[in-house]
Write a protein that binds this DNA or RNA. Structure first.
Length: 449
RNA sequence: GGCGAGUUGGCGGAGUGGUUACGCAGCGGAUUGCAAAUCCGUGUACAGGAGUUCGAUUCUCCUACUCGCCUCCA
């Protein structure tokens, strides 16, 4: 809409717990988009907003449990502390994945005033009504309701899985505001003390921070309905001529070893779990980017291992050279084509194969595939190379002897040990080299006699 | 019951109305004491059926299967 101010809003997490792997996908996907937009339009020309939803019944339940467990603070204080802590976790974990922080990360609880104002506007325009302390959005008042997700109100009602509250005019009407009991957090409003419904916070914050119309709205495909559908209904009815979001992007879900990630299947884990297991954040990111964002992404150990191997190879090429290069244009083109990250990775392989360390380095940086882990890895790699150079010398000597007396027993034994420790043994015509691989483990080396 | 996405070689995973990526694994060769690594070479895969077309993996329709959403969910 405005090349000097490209605006993007992405639905962020409800901060009640550690981010799981599924939470990480939109973060990584839209981080790539953010980086691309900054590259194309300029770093200062892009505004990226991603919210924290810090008012939610799951949070309330946790806070109440803490209170009942003896926490003497007020409910609001506990909630604030709880969500503060969860946000810190989120930042740490997403930073580890190489995701840039958005320009603005608004918290829902800091925009209650704007939500109330928007709801009042909707009531005034006849799109919402108060009933029994609730305020509900009247879906029948918005003819385009269901357009984004390709549903019709009638179809959905036919599905008959809608909870029908007696105060609703239509079963599909959704809550904009609901009353709070004394044990629940609440804010004063024209409809009494209460709290916002789930969807209104994004509409209010997007409007406040990006204006009535902006370029891109993103989030997980599971949010397409009802969350985004409801956002559209609210925002478009509140600001009928603005248009709200120009483009909607939805990432597909994450699976684990071919199955849906769920607590009941026991394949549920957080980003922190993976990091603690020793997977570098860049490897997790690399796995994410190897699948197009609109397809389900299957997390498997095998993919992670493969990603680590490939990234390790890239890093070892760029890590030991200080050349400054340009971001590869073919990668930018691939990303410009609906974020074809896998094609971009194929191009990285090409840069690696032709040995263009400078371009590879700049492009990896652009894609967020080098970070602290790379520095750590380079250090470890250097140390390992040093350690192995002694072994290399010894092996070289032993081999020279063996070449004369044709007894290769010792050479083979040394080789086995080195390979077993994850080293790579290269014996050429006259050169012997021993180099570490990503699997190198010095503790598996026994002292050479 | 409603809505949607997908089904590509051993595996992962792009893409295209005709020339069929890329990575890993495999195979053949060079090399090697043997390997590893490297280099060179190598595989005509697009769920099934019908249709449109000179020609379809790519477009249309049908069928099968998988998955997701419809309820908190990224």
């Amino acid at each position: 809409m405005d090349a000097d101010n490209v605006r993007m809003y992405v639905c962020g997490p409800t901060v009640y717990d550690r981010a799981h792997l599924g939470n990480a996908r939109p973060v990584v996907v839209f981080d790539v988009l953010y980086r691309l937009l900054r590259h194309v339009y300029g770093e200062g020309q892009v505004t990226y907003v991603r919210n924290f939803t810090d008012v939610d019944d799951k949070i309330n339940a946790r806070a109440r449990a803490l209170q009942e467990g003896g926490d003497g603070r007020s409910l609001n204080e506990i909630i604030r502390a709880l969500t503060d802590g969860t946000i810190d976790w989120y930042h740490a974990d997403m930073d580890a994945l190489g995701a840039l922080r958005p320009d603005v990360e608004p918290r829902a609880t800091e925009f209650i005033v704007q939500m109330v104002a928007m709801i009042e506007g909707l009531v005034a325009k006849g799109h919402a009504y108060a009933a029994e302390g609730h305020v509900l959005f009247d879906v029948r008042s918005y003819p385009d309701y269901g357009k984004l997700s390709g549903r019709s109100v009638d179809d959905m009602i036919a599905g008959a899985r809608v909870e029908v509250a007696p105060y609703k005019r239509d079963p599909m009407d959704f809550v904009l505001w609901k009353p709070s009991s004394d044990e629940e957090p609440g804010w004063d409003s024209p409809w009494g003390r209460g709290r916002p419904g789930w969807h209104i916070e994004c509409s209010a914050m997007a409007h406040e921070l990006l204006g009535p119309a902006f370029d891109i709205h993103g989030g997980g495909i599971d949010l397409q309905f009802p969350h985004h559908e409801n956002e559209i209904a609210q925002s478009c009815c509140a600001h009928p001529d603005a248009g709200f979001a120009n483009f909607w992007l939805h990432n597909e879900m994450v699976q684990v070893e071919g199955k849906k990630m769920s607590k009941s299947l026991g394949n549920f884990f957080t980003v922190r779990d993976l990091l603690d297991q020793g997977w570098p954040g860049e490897v997790i990111r690399f796995v994410m980017l190897s699948t197009h964002y609109r397809k389900p992404m299957d997390w498997t150990e095998e993919k992670a291992r493969e990603a680590q191997k490939q990234l390790g190879a890239f890093w070892s090429l760029v890590g030991h050279s200080e050349q400054k290069g340009e971001i590869d244009n073919a990668v930018v083109e691939a990303l410009s084509d609906d974020l074809n990250t896998h094609k971009a990775i194929a191009r990285l392989h090409h840069l690696y194969t032709v040995g263009d360390a400078a371009a590879l380095s700049a492009t990896l940086r652009f894609l967020g595939l080098v970070g602290e882990d790379q520095a750590v890895w380079i250090d470890a790699d250097k140390a390992a190379r040093e350690l192995l150079s002694d072994y290399s010398e010894a092996l070289s000597k032993a081999r020279a002897e063996a070449m004369l007396n044709k007894d290769f027993g010792l050479v083979d034994q040394m080789k086995r040990m080195l390979l077993n420790a994850g080293a790579e043994v290269r014996i050429g015509k006259d050169v012997v080299e021993v180099l570490p691989t990503v699997e190198f483990d010095p503790s598996k080396l026994e002292a050479l006699k």
